[in-house]
């Protein structure tokens, strides 16, 4: 798949549900010049209402659960949820904590998992590419009323 296959830009909303910052700084690193995800049109936006992809990090603490659901519900269809990091996918090192509601797939439907603690920026970009593929598929299905 070449670059010209990218017809639309992915707009990403990032939400931290109690992660340690490790994944979050790697997400920013993925956007800054060394990895430069912005060359594919990937852009962080300030509101879930503008986003195609919800990028979630962290194991979902009790206080953040409501907020995560609200952000997810505010996103327009079709939407994709990408979980970055081990603690969001499975609980990771925090698996036994009393204050966690996660992992994230218990709360909202997840499409793509990016494992790693934290994953490298390349892995995050790979995850976003997969999200883009899935999103395009979903859009096609909708057009053909499947």
């Amino acid at each position: 798949m070449g670059l010209d296959a990218l017809k639309r830009s992915l707009w990403v909303f990032h939400i931290n549900t109690g992660s340690c910052n490790g994944c979050d700084i790697e997400i920013i690193a993925a956007l800054t010049p060394r990895y430069d995800a912005e060359r594919f049109g990937v852009k962080l936006v300030g509101s879930p209402r503008h986003a195609d992809v919800l990028l979630v990090t962290g194991p979902v603490t009790r206080k953040m659960k409501e907020r995560l659901i609200r952000a997810y519900e505010q996103m327009p269809e079709p939407k994709i949820v990408v979980v970055v990091g081990n603690c969001g996918s499975t609980g990771g090192v925090f698996y036994e904590s009393y204050n966690l509601e996660g992992p994230i797939d218990k709360i909202i439907p997840v499409d793509i998992y990016v494992p790693g603690c934290p994953p490298r920026p390349e892995a995050i970009i790979h995850g976003l590419a997969k999200a883009w593929e899935k999103l395009e598929g979903m859009k096609k299905c909708k057009q053909q009323n499947l």
Binding site: N16, G18, G58, T61, M64, F94, E96, S97, L100
Partner: peptide, 14 residues
């Protein structure tokens, strides 16, 4: 504060 409280000290005791 408290949005990122994961109970790390509590987990540490186990």
């Amino acid at each position: 504060l408290g949005h990122v409280h994961r109970g790390i000290e509590w987990m540490g005791l186990r």
